[in-house]
Design a protein around this nucleic acid. Structure first.
Lengths: 341, 341
DNA sequence: TGGTCATACTAAAACGATTTAGAAACATTT
DNA sequence: AAATGTTTCTAAATCGTTTTAGTATGACCA
């Protein structure tokens, strides 16, 4: 059906190799022949077969995406989805398609592949790891396999990474809350997720810097991106003898659990209790009260991840692994009350 | 690096063809040899190369996804994303990966490929079209190319399709609104989108069946999944001399525009004005007021689409193109006021 | 004993590209 | 005139599979 290089060569009276060379810019082809080849390629509608080329060259122009499988949200994940969207767009500009790498793929009745095996099976040129379970042994195996890798949010020794300036963002958020007059500030941090641990540490440090005491029971472990778990955590905080006036949540999406509980208790945000999230999920900024949060630049994160990965693939000798930090922005929103007297 | 069939054959003292046949269940291989081959495959960690197999057999176990590019939402699209998520999950179960087919891909400096060319370039076994611009000439070309195709929401003559029971869903919604005592009901319908036209017709018909007059200016064309455009449309309706008591919107996400405008006008939902959406977007059901809407079963839609496509790929002779209709469910929510006296 | 038939394998071509080595044609140098 | 160099092409191998055709071996039958 599709036009092959053989069809072209027959049409032109050339050898297949000459046609291939002409198309690929080899210098031992005359300008005239090159022109004829290009003209014929357009005329006959020739398209190279990605898989044939991939077989011979070992390059597929396909990048693998390890995407948070167990988050339960998939493509609807409020933070990863827009990152992925941007990553895909940039990859496409550079001529790469993306393939999702899972740990449940099985080919012809064999048992499930690991991430690494799936990557090899599809011969991806590199892999971008967009998820939050970096302690998974399969992730470790993949990162150390030698395949070009970029991770999002969590740096690995000697590997490329793209992450928000979490520390700066968190600091700005906590300073803002404090500047609004809050003293009784609690934090719910998510697990399992390396990123929320970084934010937790930053929270503690910023409180200390401001000389604000951290009351007993004010740090609650919960789950990232999980409204249900966060709802319980908020309940725990509100039933303390000295409940906080402001609660910092693991992320915006999880704030839905907080909002639900607070409504059930017939309390008002922010008059009775203030909350803050992290991420800057667009849909939540379209509703009232607009949540006070830290905007992550998902567009830049995704784009930089793609660039970093493709650089690495195409110029692996000169590539220097590094972590690219992407600026965040405080969104003051409407969920932190002014407590100054 | 990776173990090939040749490595296996050398290890076992067999010909590559024997190994291949053993792995693929040919009957002219003795049971004993077959066992040895499988054992060696496991031991050496053999994984077939998808591209080599694809080159020879013409089957890549890859399905193409044409995904709403111009919606501006990408992976964050409130309706398509969960459909895609489910589709991907089912495809994976059946051993297929997915590849996004775009109309902007360019390989080695050539000009952008059409959807069909991109599909051929990647040798996908079939394509699922998940978008709302079915009049795009490139979509038509793809649908008629002979590649196995499944569409979502919009049937094509002689092709497989999966769609919600839009008519039943819309009817239920309108009947519910009427049962709540509303008489002045307006509709904002989205364009360009075939699906909202179906819903519009159904709205008109259901109104007629109930003997409720459709007042002048009560049908407003706007845009699907576009809060900004819908906001304007609502403004138009509210400035009518006889404004509606209830507005049916193109979809849940677009309702954000309606809510914004209504808040700006210092009106209350549903006391002053009732609204209803379509889709059943989960995040909006977690907030108050929960929007009155029609839940689309995105999980089933995605799964059925994958099944239909893979059936067609794997048994094309016996495949009978058909439209699978998926049931919808009315969510009464909190945005339609009780107007019965 | 020679012919037929299964059985269980091997050889080789093929898929569609790329790439290395080599060759033909012609020009240039010594 | 022979040697050398340039330019521009072709031949053939190769990537890792699958698949068709063919072959060796032994069994069975007449």
């Amino acid at each position: 059906m599709a036009v092959t290089i053989k069809d072209l060569s027959a049409y032109l009276g050339l050898s297949p190799s000459a046609v291939s060379k002409a198309l690929n810019g080899y210098t031992d082809i005359s300008q005239e022949t090159r022109n004829r080849v290009f003209a014929a390629a357009v005329k006959l509608g020739y398209r190279p077969s990605a898989i044939a080329r991939g077989l011979k060259t070992g390059r597929t122009f396909n990048i693998g995406i390890v995407y948070s499988e167990n988050s339960g949200s998939g493509f609807t994940h409020s933070y990863f989805s827009p990152v992925l969207e941007s990553l895909k767009a940039e990859a496409e500009i550079q001529g790469y398609d993306i393939t999702f790498i899972s740990s449940s793929m099985r080919a012809s009745g064999q048992k499930a592949m690991t991430y690494l095996q799936h990557s090899q099976y599809r011969n991806v040129d590199g892999v971008c790891i967009v998820c939050c379970e970096f302690n998974d042994p399969q992730i470790i195996e993949l990162v150390n396999s030698g395949i070009p890798v970029v991770t999002i949010d969590r740096p690995f020794e000697g590997k490329a990474c793209v992450a928000s300036e979490n520390v700066q963002g968190m600091k700005a958020l906590v300073n803002y809350i404090i500047s609004m007059g809050h003293k009784k500030i609690a934090m719910i941090y998510g697990s399992p997720s390396n990123i929320t641990t970084i934010r937790l540490n930053c929270f503690i440090e910023t409180m200390k810097e401001n000389g604000i005491p951290l009351l007993e029971g004010y740090l609650v472990e919960s789950l990232y991106h999980n409204p249900g778990a966060v709802k319980e955590a908020v309940a725990k905080l509100l039933s303390l003898p000295y409940p906080p006036s402001c609660i910092v949540l693991p992320d915006d999406f999880a704030s839905l659990g907080a909002i639900e509980l607070i409504e059930e208790r017939k309390l008002k945000i922010p008059e009775d209790i203030s909350i803050a999230g992290f991420d800057g999920v667009p849909i939540l900024q379209m509703l009232h009260p607009r949540i006070t949060t830290v905007l992550q630049d998902t567009f830049t994160i995704g784009r930089e991840a793609a660039k970093l990965l493709i650089n690495q693939i195409e110029d692996s000798e000169n590539f220097i692994p590094r972590t690219v930090e992407v600026a965040t922005k405080l969104i003051k929103g409407e969920t932190v009350a002014n407590n100054r007297r």
